[in-house]
Design a binder for these strands. Structure first.
Lengths: 202, 202
DNA sequence: TGTCATTAGTGACTCCACTCATAACTGAGC
DNA sequence: GCTCAGTTATGAGTGGAGTCACTAATGACA
């Protein structure tokens, strides 16, 4: 992640250090109090930079949340992908991918939901949004790979079903009704929906 | 809609008139310029009321949008439900329900997407949000009814599949990637997903 | 009609995300 | 070193959603 190109100028080094301070500050404050209860001022102060400087590194507060959470999401996906390898039953394998993602998203419910909101409604041309979307696409691919294990399902159908499955996952996590539900309830709910998708016609 | 209980006090009448002026003003301004480019001040001015008064009738700007759009959504659902009755093919029937909803949502893309955002992420205890959610539930029921026409699908499965189908519909409308897509493209996209859902196992 | 508790209306104000004119810094060329 | 074009940093300022302490209106009752 933190690659260090052989000898970079003071300028570059300074920029990097500042970005790191920003991520550290935002990460800590968001985790502690939830994104809604943290002001950009507080983040700037904690990172020891001016207000305007913050917005040089993240165009919006939302992007700041993506900046912090993308890494966690990515890691969760990797864990899930690995876990799914050893599992034969298709629904179990799909859930093995989904579980860490949901757990990660639910570490702090409000932040998780805000993250999803940004993902869907944020400006997709912003680099951090694009990154989040790209991880979501990889999640879909991982699901598709599992679905396509079954010989009776074509690659094309598997891709579409994976898309549907990830829609189900995202909306179940985002839904206001589920805001107070615990992770296991959510997972059970998702499993019900995924099961019907895959079961149909057996 | 505008029921008039036999003789109500001046107070009640005044409140109603004010609400109507607010809805009219918000409706016109939102349609003309898009919700993001209209300030609550402008709505208050157009409705000829004070700033604070506006928030007596709608707790947030988002709620104001729901107030305006819920009626359209409801009407679209009714049209779709009626259209679906005469259609034999299951996917065609589902799409008959979905089409007017998508068309209605896309009259003004930004407003449509903001409406969806409010629906999912807004405070579900607010009456207007609750109303929107209730219409969404009825949409789901309508879809479930069509899916359940097929004898080989249980009522329970039909309900779950309907939920999945409406997730697909909502996320396809909301997705940032589709923000610039036209209505027919969206509908085709939704149809692809719904088809696979229903086709599976035939 | 006058009193009064309750409900509705108000706009100056607060809070916060984000901007922008200006200043400071960096490093390449000399 | 010195200059200067480009880049980065800054915080006072701006715009807009939402609040609140206060005022006005209403109607129930005497």
């Amino acid at each position: 992640m933190t690659e260090a190109p052989i000898s970079m100028g003071r300028r570059e080094r300074n920029k990097r250090a500042k970005l790191e301070r920003i991520v550290a500050a935002a990460s800590a404050l968001f985790a502690e109090r939830g994104a809604d209860d943290v002001t950009t001022q507080q983040i700037a102060d904690a990172a020891d930079i001016g207000t305007g400087t913050l917005f040089l590194y993240a165009k919006t507060k939302g992007e700041l949340l993506l900046l912090v959470q993308n890494a966690h999401y990515e890691e969760a996906l990797e864990r899930g992908r690995a876990a799914a390898d050893g599992i034969g039953d298709p629904v179990d394998a799909l859930m093995a991918i989904i579980r860490p993602v949901v757990e990660c998203n639910r570490v702090q419910v409000d932040n998780g939901r805000t993250y999803l909101r940004e993902m869907v409604f944020g400006d997709p041309t912003e680099p951090r949004h694009a990154e989040a979307l790209e991880i979501a696409l990889r999640t879909e691919s991982a699901l598709a790979a599992v679905i396509a294990r079954r010989p009776e399902i074509s690659e094309a159908d598997a891709a579409v079903l994976a898309r549907v499955a990830s829609s189900v996952m995202f909306l179940t996590m985002a839904a206001g009704v589920n805001a107070t539900a615990d992770t296991e309830t959510l997972l059970a709910d998702i499993r019900t929906q995924i099961s019907v998708l895959t079961r149909r016609g057996e």
